[in-house]
Design a protein around this nucleic acid. Structure first.
Lengths: 634, 634
DNA sequence: TTGTCTCCCAGTGGGAGACAA
DNA sequence: TTGTCTCCCACTGGGAGACAA
């Protein structure tokens, strides 16, 4: 019912920031001003919003941070999962060139799944019937979530990111998102507490001073900057939720090539893992989990069913003109036109007939802002000529197709591996054509019992015996050593005077910053033995909880046929590892690797509601959810 | 030939530090004193040692850091690979509880492999014959590598890690490892340049002052501390190589539970990946890569063939007494006695008959220093009663065994999955007994072409537009933002005076430091536009190179039957993610995730020689290599 | 309205000897 | 011989208004 409330209860769909009209007074919005315990300004208790609203706020913040193009399916959505794309994502993460020899699994190139649960971590269950829903069980996309939440983003200026001084608050941001100051006093100021996507709370001093007067965020800002490793050009997002709570998000400029050596298992083992997981899930009817980062891969590999079907209903031909949407400056969507110059399987051996990146394209004009792929998938583009619809009912996602034989060698020698081959399935795979995609899901003969997905959620554990750092004064947890970093020592060239001493630089190779994101400075244990560890605070992080009581039932209610869709707060990922189009979604993601124990209790999972309503969204993932208040200061 | 030289050319095997007798004069060892460019002390050019020596030095440093119990096989060694153990390692990394449902692959529980190449990244090729070597091709373990290298380690005191002042150098360390100072001057001092395991160069000021006089390392020390995130109790290792080069290593105390959410793919996909990789390699006769961290898992899962065979030659029974070696204080090996209290398959369904952790044990005395497992593998222990040898030729590692059937469900319902099952192989697996382990490697019918393993080596790329930090003055690369961290702002309780300001702490939950190892403080782009980026230096990091000309030939020379064994410099791993017994081997490992592009050029791979000599080491991996100079100051 | 600069000054921490274990 | 402490002081950077775009 909470879901229903949230989905149905709001109207309006626009891009204008809806300023809470009843909130013109200070009182109504100072729920965002948490008591900070030092008595300065704590005029309001922590007015806890109900869970639904909190979820919603985080959902909006997530999308505000993620940018306009990032679409995450909702619970209830039918999607097509492309293992190829998944492997590309992993390749991107593991710096592989994708040339690893992989066996050919007897795995369809696309797998129809239903989304059950979104938790920033994706778990899919292959549909037993791979031929799409019957009309009556047609997916019913959710009503758009309307929201009165308001956010503004500001691109950080050099002054904002300098070590001297704080953050210059655009007036509209202050007016719309921050609690109003008492302008009657000499120097109006207050303390703000804002939550980030991890639920971490950051306190800031908000002051109105200077000549001419302006809004500034001073204390706490540099800690935030450092912790998030923000640079000039990155954006900071302030969002005021319906509950009045203030939230901060960030969005990195970083077009920097991400690279990661995940080094837990080898890259090719990961590739194997992807295929084997999907294969296992398909053949046993069990769920599987996907870490989905639509902003990571050049293309999203989980495609809404309707969007996919729409693309299969068209024929594509060389010479065809199309448009494709990219993200431009300031969250603007930007369309580029191009021409299809080739159509061919990207991997005829392993994924014969797959539409994945099947279209070779040429772009009309070069662009500096977007990196545009040379190959796209049909559902990525909108044809701009009227293409003739195919004479096919959209229903037949699948017809009887000859089985695919297995070869453990990926080579065209077509070596067969008896160990991997399925008994009685040895007809060579027919090379698919774009029209009339066919496949057959192979025998699903036994299913393991369904287990609830293991959501690995970070949870605090103790870190006593440390003194409190300045950062800890602004972020409301004992900060571990690695966060306990100032910007370090800087050999300053900034204003002409050079600060040097003792040992000079030896020459150094040009290193990427990301190359060093380990080895980060840390505080050290203080020499003095009288460290007063009793000052470490103990309040729980009040992140929107993973509703433990919901997760399991949810999965169980769908039973074996459900698909789970979740997203994990991967607080551990290095955002530099995120690719060029990296947006800081739920990974606004601290920059270095954190080790997160799965102890329980608190959790950073942000559950998103299960969709049940029946309005049909023709394409894309509930896009309108994110269109409420996309203003952008600066 | 270089390998031969290195292996044969040295004699002597002892624990005493061999001080280079010809090096009493300053000259001979000041090769380690690099010109720093500021004219202070740069009396010697960078006397580059030959590659072999460099490799050897790094090898020794690696083992000095890794501790006495960490054994890495050498090229040429025959080893048994246990997928179970590999999965445990991944579980440990991914915080899984190991309860994921995994399919039963048709994969033997142990796989005989030969080691060809060690590069801090392990690639194995299953032997076609799984029955062990014939007598004439009996493995010929290498001669121990003798070395005149000398190292000392010092456990860091609170003073060493305090923000005030530097590192107090034990006299013996200074005498044995550091270049001698010119004592004729008023205040003897010099600059040191030391390489760490990544090949990164750290410069330190070494001074002899105070009253009474003592050796100190001042400038550069705190940068090193911060970058490595060292704390009181961690150890710092100084090693002088034969070439005279100075090297630093660290060894963390951190018994801290490691936790990692590797979040590239899901944990269960990783498990699948391990099994599928090994299976694919076994069935196609190709190589596979293993990230081997013997200090990560409670037990090493790559066991020397001889050690394994020795263990199979004994019978184990309940009540049997044994000893097992653990690491105690100060690199001391420490033996604990215990009793076998049970013998049973740890996973009778999937790994029936496997010796992996087959022995349930009880320890005689509790220990605070070591965490001791409740289950061990036979090769982990030394029986202390005389056990009757089994009447079996050691030759038959394998006999004809009934094939193992496949079930994709891990359940005892013994569900079968026709998709995964091998044709004609459906006899239920016989439950093995410890005596006479039997198995048969299933048909190897086709092999893919051998490709050289893809060594993902980090390589620098540009990071211009930043001013040089103080850290960069001591570490000879432009430091990326995340390294550019001082210990941050500290609310000081250390000496009674509390430093506080502005915004007070809000209460916070007890958080693990590792939970935050992302979000680490960073420097920010300086406001001033006149950043003089031309000051960024461009010298290449002169890490011992991955000998590109060697890697491929090596693999090819062995052709299809070889096994590759390597270790990667996983500069990316968060060492906090390393488990309790974590030693900082090649992962002395900066603490946070770095993103490392694979651009080429320079490389951090540390190739280790291929072993070809013929002295037989009965057990363990070339252990004597690390016993040359294990002194430990303090 | 807001970005940049410079000034002020408190806080931090590197580096030294004193002193003690 | 070496660990701890305290003192000194240079440097860093938060925070303010001035000023200009």
């Amino acid at each position: 019912m909470r879901e229903r409330e949230r989905k149905m209860g709001r109207g309006g769909k626009g891009k204008a920031c809806r300023v809470n009209s009843s909130g013109g007074d200070t009182e109504d919005r100072t729920g965002i001003v948490d008591g900070t315990g030092d008595g300065l300004i704590s005029n309001n208790t922590n007015k806890k919003a109900n869970q639904g609203d909190v979820d919603n706020v985080y959902y909006e913040l997530w999308h505000a941070c993620a940018g306009p193009l990032v679409k995450v399916p909702q619970a209830g959505d039918l999607v097509i999962y492309f293992p190829q794309g998944h492997m590309e994502q992993v390749e991107a993460y593991t710096c592989q060139d994708g040339k690893t020899e992989m066996p050919i699994y007897n795995l369809p190139y696309k797998i129809l799944c239903k989304v059950v649960y979104v938790q920033l971590k994706v778990t899919l269950l292959p549909e037993v019937k791979q031929d799409g829903p019957s009309p009556e069980e047609k997916v019913s996309p959710v009503l758009s979530q309307k929201s009165s939440a308001c956010y503004h983003s500001k691109k950080l200026t050099p002054s904002d990111t300098s070590t001297h001084g704080g953050f210059s608050v655009p007036k509209r941001l202050a007016d719309d998102c921050l609690p109003h100051l008492d302008m009657s006093v000499e120097i109006p100021q207050q303390e703000l507490v804002a939550r980030d996507l991890h639920g971490f709370r950051w306190s800031f001093k908000h002051i109105y001073r200077g000549n001419p007067k302006r809004h500034l965020i001073t204390s706490g800002w540099s800690q935030f900057l450092n912790a998030k490793k923000l640079n000039t050009g990155d954006a900071c997002i302030f969002l005021r939720g319906e509950d009045g709570g203030l939230h901060v998000g960030i969005r990195r400029l970083t077009k920097q090539k991400h690279t990661a050596s995940a080094s837990v298992i080898s890259g090719s083992s990961m590739q194997h893992g992807i295929l084997a997981s999907a294969f296992h899930a398909v053949s046993t009817g069990t769920m599987f989990t996907v870490y989905y980062r639509p902003w990571t891969s050049p293309s999203a590999f989980i495609v809404p069913y309707d969007q996919y079907m729409k693309s299969t209903a068209l024929s594509y031909s060389v010479g065809m003109r199309f448009k494709m949407t990219f993200e431009g400056e300031e969250c603007q969507e930007q369309k580029f036109a191009g021409t299809v110059v080739g159509i061919e399987d990207i991997d005829p051996i392993r994924w014969s007939g797959s539409e994945w990146r099947r279209l070779e394209v040429q772009w009309d004009a070069p662009s500096e802002t977007s990196v545009r792929p040379g190959r796209v998938s049909p559902w990525d583009i909108e044809p701009t000529e009227v293409s003739k619809k195919k004479n096919m009912p959209t229903k037949n996602l699948q017809k009887r197709a000859p089985p695919i034989y297995l070869s453990s060698s990926g080579h065209s020698t077509a070596g067969r591996d008896d160990l991997l081959q399925c008994p009685g399935e040895s007809t060579p795979q027919r090379h698919g054509v774009l029209k009339g995609q066919e496949e057959r899901i192979l025998g699903v003969n036994e299913r393991g019992p369904l287990r609830p997905p293991m959501f690995l959620v970070p949870s605090p554990h103790l870190d006593w015996g440390r003194t409190k750092t300045r950062l800890e004064k602004h972020m409301h947890f004992p900060i571990p050593d690695s966060l306990n970093c100032g910007p370090g020592s800087i050999l300053t060239f900034s204003d002409g005077k050079r600060v040097g001493s003792g040992i000079s630089n030896m020459c150094s190779p040009p290193f990427t910053s990301s190359e060093f994101h380990d080895g980060v400075g840390a505080s050290r244990t203080l020499a003095a033995p009288n460290v007063n560890s009793s000052n470490a605070c103990t309040q729980e992080r009040t992140v929107p909880n993973a509703k433990d009581e919901t997760e399991v039932p949810l999965a169980q209610q769908y039973g074996r046929k459900i698909t789970i869709f979740g997203v994990e707060v991967d607080i551990c990922k290095n955002p530099l590892e995120l690719p060029s189009q990296q947006v800081t979604t739920f990974g606004e993601l601290p920059k270095s690797c954190a080790a997160l124990p799965t102890t329980s209790q608190s959790s950073t999972s942000i559950p998103v509601q299960v969709s049940e309503s029946s309005k049909s969204a023709s394409e894309g993932f509930s896009e309108n959810q994110r269109k409420n208040c996309c203003t952008s200061a600066n």
